[in-house]
Design a protein around this nucleic acid. Structure first.
Length: 289
DNA sequence: AATGTTTTCAACCGCACAGGA
DNA sequence: ATCCTGTGCGGTTGAAAACAT
């Protein structure tokens, strides 16, 4: 159900992603984090940064849920949409594992369709969040979601509404942890903030398995300034320890990085790789099929 | 079985915003 | 203050899958 792959006028590939591209993207993100999508083309992945980000966020990211929405999730989407309007990313923040794109699709293909099919729940023009102005300028001008009664939307699913699992409190929504069908801890997880750190659970089926940490060791001969390693990078034992830290590769390069070749204390970062030897880059290519 | 129609959802596009130069 | 670049968001598209005739 996706566009067939093609190459645009800039030589960037578009359309459906291949397994090889997915592997490259996974490897890149796990190696360097996701702080600069535009560097991907340097890694043999001829995709624009936006495309890479979208693919990662909506599909490859560990923990992304796929499949049908549960009753609880559906109710939560409805409630949040009533409250927030088409703020899909904000809605997604309250549904662990669901992406804004998926929720948006879910809303348009299921909820709206069901409403339209059932005259009893037909929208009153201008009275639902879905009828809100689409442009951000208009949204800002009005600055509040239009109201819709709870009963109007919840009667979409009588059983769900009578056994509501949703708590609304100060804009923070969560699934009722006493629910027999809901997950007790799921709602407590800050999915989007917890995604790329060392604590990420990669054990789920289908998730990319990180390579063993020992594979990431800088070869000792490259730690010497006499080696072919660029003299700008004078690796120390501390550097090796830092780079082996569980959070390093999964985290960002906000600190301890520099664009400056003369910065003797800089770690390797994707910014600095162009034209230089990058053992990780070499390893990365060796591992790919 | 063949054909037409509808549904689904991954991916694209344009815009707005933030931050740095 | 202005421009540039990168990122994130929401709306839309379009082809495959599912369903109906």
């Amino acid at each position: 159900m996706v566009r067939p792959p093609y190459v645009d006028s800039n030589g960037l590939k578009k359309g459906a992603w291949s397994d090889d591209e997915d592997n490259k993207l996974r490897a890149y993100v796990q190696r360097y984090g996701h702080w600069n999508w535009r560097l991907l083309p340097k890694y043999g992945l001829a995709r624009c940064g936006k495309s890479c980000r979208l693919r990662w966020v909506n599909y490859l990211q560990p923990g992304v849920k796929r499949g049908n929405f549960s009753k609880e999730e559906e109710d939560l989407v409805v409630k949040l949409h009533n409250k927030l309007g088409n703020k899909w990313s904000a809605i997604a923040a309250s549904l662990p594992g669901r992406t804004d794109n998926e929720i948006k699709n879910f809303w348009h293909t299921r909820i709206e369709r069901r409403r339209n099919a059932n005259p009893a729940h037909k929208k009153v023009k201008g009275n639902t969040a879905a009828d809100k102005p689409s442009s951000k300028a208009q949204v800002l001008a009005e600055d509040k979601p239009s109201a819709v009664t709870l009963s109007e939307t919840l009667t979409l699913n009588e059983s769900a509404s009578s056994n509501s699992l949703i708590n609304l409190q100060n804009s923070t929504l969560s699934l009722d942890t006493n629910s027999s069908s809901g997950s007790a801890t799921e709602s407590q997880v800050d999915f989007w903030a917890d995604t790329f750190l060392g604590s990420t659970d990669y054990s789920q089926e289908g998730c990319f398995q990180p390579l063993p940490e020992e594979e990431f060791l800088i070869p000792s001969e490259l730690s010497s300034s006499e080696s072919s390693y660029p003299s700008a990078f004078c690796w120390s034992a501390d550097d090796d320890l830092s780079i082996m830290s569980p959070n390093f590769w999964g985290g960002s390069f906000v600190s301890n990085t520099s664009n400056s070749e003369s910065d003797q204390t800089s770690y390797i970062s994707p910014q600095e790789i162009g034209g230089y030897y990058d053992p990780f880059f070499e390893y990365f290519h060796q591992q790919l099929p």
